[in-house]
Design a protein around this nucleic acid. Structure first.
Length: 788
RNA sequence: UGGGGCAUCGUCUAAUGGCAGGACAACGGUCUUUGGAACCGUCGGUCGUGGUUCGAGUCCACGUGCCCCAGCCA
């Protein structure tokens, strides 16, 4: 771990840390298993960042594995594109890409082994019948008539399946697990099905193919994977994964690999976009975009063509983070990551996107000017003091320049001139002045308009050196600059959550699924303008990314830009606090976030006090518990759970029932319910008696109870062994409190200034000092007193 | 509807019973030959109701909302 860590610590790295500490694994292997049935998108980028990033952080390995178990959906073209995209992102998967299809023979052998163990059977009911027999979420399934076939018959049929004796759908191999499981995934999942189709890698060698569940677990194990990370929708599938490993791991061919375990994380989607393959296909096929690599697409091919660098994608993925919740990420995070990446890597040049002609009436001769590629701040922040040229060479800042020509005829942006300027306008106005970047201040003397009132030309004079102006604008020479097309990309959708919004519409109107999201496609997601760019760019490598000053980051479209007909893609805008910003703020205000919608709905049905409904039986138990002095909240729980009440009753033989109740309900209930409680009723009673007598405090009681549950030792015995007792000696506590206060003068001041939340901090410090044995009430009282 | 998962500033993410913190966004300021960048500051959050506790985002109970599962897809 000498390199900086890519993935911030999270619930998965905690598991890994613990696994390493306990010696369960000596090294970490993860895997990224895309199915080659489509192009990689930003969702893949984030998932791969987690898989490859964690492996990197632990000095382990991450396998790139094509999950190619469905020949009808998969194509070599997709596999190649996926591999190229992962390479572009910069991931290292070692010497070879792994393929599930490479393991087909081993998988087949393991399937036979399951049959031999009586754990898998060939089922021969038609698909619809199998679905019916599986039951529903609230009705258990019923066994197929073929479920109890003999091992010999199963083996024979399975071998004949492989030999191609049957048609698609005639038979499947199923795991024999549990048809009545509440987890639908465990109702005898399919392990192998017959598919007479040519596979893009194995050709016609196979006509049976393993299912996702079977292939995933087994190929993980064969690949030596230790931590198999996937997204949250596979939580239920983990039961199959573990079942398969229970029965296959440890024997050949899985006798020399670590046992893999699956962990799930939440998916990430992005505002103003969609990533489902079906929906992306509709965008392409419906002509909403120009192809899979359209720069508006969230595909990596699209982002790459747009000009986004892999560094930016990785920076973005790293900032997004991991958790166990599905989340939709703010698009500003992506845009910010792209800008951060380009700010220090993209040299500055000038281009005018929407030209307005300017004539400098007092400039007799063209002037040649050397312009720096970089602004001062980038130069100053450069770690080595050098700065890159467009061709990549790093040079002294003074050498990082190009020349432009100031000629009597120029172009500036139409937006940079206004006849009637809005308030705060810092650019050119009739009679006003503005600085042309690095070329001097001009004043607008006159302007000409066409019949429609559009400004067509400005007549300006160049002012002397010492002239001042409030604003600076960019410009190009009308004679020297080269024409270019600029493609200005904006968000693909007009709303941040197109899928969610479409779903609401579909629910209401009952329109076909996956359709309505198209109505949110942003009609202005692509704007094409014709302008001019300074000539210097013709000498640069065609893949140079520039900041076109005040216009954003651009590069030449890698497929459409030609030497005589330049085409530039806008990669991302500059942040802008002016102009169109005013409308955007309004828009944003009106857009209620999806989550806020949900919250609003939750609150609106004027939540009535939840009435707990009890059976007559429970009601009478409740009354009797209340009569014994047990508080309402505990009594309610106990009334409904006889198991807890019984425990309490036993304990109450040797300690007051009213003092015991909250311990049973709040601390021991989960263990008692699941039958794993190692604290006996008498043990609890003994503990509560010590507590009641003031010998110990609740903190000690809680800790001891947890330890007793862990070790099975009697709580009172633990207290004796450790010599635990509550410290209520005022003098002793006072000394500790004084010391703590003296050690934290800043905190004391903050407390006195009103930050009373710090009381917990001080009490906590004292409790820590005394290993939890101080009397917390007393400590709190003392702290309060001293801090006045 | 049975099972499972999840809920912390606008967004993403920390806090492992003891100071609700960071990043992005927004807003304000400084600086600036980019209305960029940088720097400084401000705003803003524990889904709800009860309970346990000296102390609860964290533990308990009951609610509410969202997501996943009934493919021979993955």
């Amino acid at each position: 771990m000498n390199k900086p860590r890519l993935v911030t610590p999270n619930f998965i790295t905690e598991i890994i840390d613990e696994d390493l500490r306990a010696g369960r694994y000596s090294r970490i292997v993860t895997r990224f298993p895309p199915e080659p049935n489509g192009y990689a998108h930003l969702g893949h980028a984030i998932a791969s960042y987690i898989d490859f990033g964690i492996a990197h952080d632990y000095g382990g390995e991450c396998r790139l594995r094509m999950d190619d178990t469905n020949p009808e959906a998969e194509r070599a073209e997709y596999a190649e594109a996926l591999i190229a995209d992962m390479g572009w992102l910069g991931w290292d998967w070692g010497p070879a890409v792994s393929y599930a299809s490479n393991y087909f023979e081993a998988l087949y052998q393991m399937a036979e082994k399951l049959i031999q163990k009586g754990l898998a059977y060939v089922d021969s009911v038609p698909p619809e019948e199998m679905a019916r027999l599986r039951g529903t979420v609230d009705k258990p399934g019923t066994p197929s008539p073929y479920r109890d076939r003999s091992v010999a018959e199963n083996l024979d049929l399975f071998r004949r399946m492989r030999a191609g004796e049957f048609h698609n759908g005639e038979h499947v191999l199923r795991a024999k697990i549990d048809l009545s499981s509440p987890n639908m995934k465990l109702r005898d999942p399919v392990l192998y099905r017959i598919v007479h189709a040519e596979h893009y890698r194995t050709g016609k060698a196979w006509c049976i193919y393993p299912s996702y569940d079977f292939a995933q677990a087994t190929t993980d194990a064969l690949d030596g994977v230790t931590h198999s990370l996937c997204s949250l929708e596979f939580v239920d599938n983990r039961a199959i994964y573990d079942w398969l490993m229970d029965h296959l791991w440890g024997e050949p061919p899985l006798h020399q690999t670590p046992r893999p375990h699956q962990y799930e994380f939440g998916r990430r989607s992005l505002e103003y976009t969609v990533v489902s393959k079906r929906k992306l296909r509709k965008l392409v096929e419906g002509g909403y975009v120009r192809g899979w690599d359209d720069p508006r697409m969230p595909t990596l091919a699209g982002q790459r063509r747009r000009g986004v660098r892999p560094e930016a994608i990785r920076r973005f993925a790293g900032q997004v983070g991991i958790s166990r919740t599905n989340r939709t990420v703010d698009i500003a995070l992506l845009e910010g990551a792209i800008r951060d990446d380009l700010n220090t890597t993209a040299p500055r040049v000038m281009a005018v996107l929407r030209p307005l002609k300017v004539v400098l009436t007092n400039l007799a001769e063209p002037r040649t000017i050397a312009l720096p590629y970089w602004p001062q701040d980038v130069i100053q922040e450069s770690p080595d003091g050098l700065v890159p040229l467009p061709d990549g060479r790093r040079v002294q800042p003074a050498e990082a320049t190009r020349t432009v020509t100031l000629t009597p005829e120029l172009y500036i942006e139409q937006d940079d001139f206004a006849i009637t300027p809005p308030k705060g306008f810092k650019r050119l106005t009739p009679g006003g002045t503005v600085r042309l970047k690095m070329a001097g201040v001009i004043r607008c003397e006159r302007y000409q308009t066409d019949g429609a009132g559009q400004v067509t030309e400005l007549l300006c004079t160049l002012l002397p050196q010492e002239a001042k102006a409030a604003g600076v604008i960019h410009w190009v020479s009308a004679l020297d600059a080269v024409p270019a097309e600029f493609r200005l990309y904006d968000r693909l959708f007009t709303v941040p959550h197109p899928e969610a919004e479409a779903k609401e519409l579909e629910d209401e109107a009952e329109t076909p699924e996956d359709h309505d999201f198209l109505r949110f496609v942003n009609p202005k997601s692509l704007e094409v303008v014709q302008g001019y760019i300074e000539r210097s760019v013709l000498q640069d490598p065609p893949d140079t990314r520039y900041q076109l000053e005040r216009n954003g980051y651009f590069w030449q479209d890698p497929t459409d830009s030609k030497p005589g007909a330049l085409v530039f893609n806008r990669i991302v805008t500059l942040k802008d606090n002016w102009g169109r910003n005013a409308e955007q703020v309004e828009e944003k205000r009106e857009t209620v976030s999806h989550k806020a919608l949900g919250k609003k709905r939750a609150e609106s049905p004027a939540s009535p006090q939840p009435a707990v409904i009890l059976t007559p039986d429970q009601e009478s138990r409740l009354q009797s518990l209340l009569a014994q002095g047990i508080p309402q909240a505990e009594a309610l729980v106990l009334a409904r759970e006889p198991r807890l009440a019984d425990f309490l009753l036993l304990a109450s033989q040797s300690a007051p029932i009213s003092a015991l109740a909250n311990w049973v309900v709040n601390d021991l209930a989960p263990a008692i319910r699941t039958g794993v409680c190692r604290v006996t009723p008498a043990g609890l009673a003994g503990l509560v008696k010590l507590l009641e007598a003031g010998e110990i405090n609740t903190r000690i009681a809680k800790d001891v109870l947890a330890e007793a549950q862990e070790s099975g030792t009697d709580p009172a015995e633990i207290i004796r062994q450790k010599g635990l007792r509550q410290v209520s000696d005022k003098g002793a506590l006072e000394r500790i409190v004084d010391r703590i206060l003296a050690e934290n003068p800043d905190k004391v001041a903050a407390y006195r200034a009103g930050k009373t939340g710090l009381l917990g901090f001080f009490v906590g410090q004292v409790m820590r000092e005394t290993q939890g044995q101080a009397n917390p009430q007393l400590v709190q009282e003392l702290v309060r007193q001293k801090l006045g």
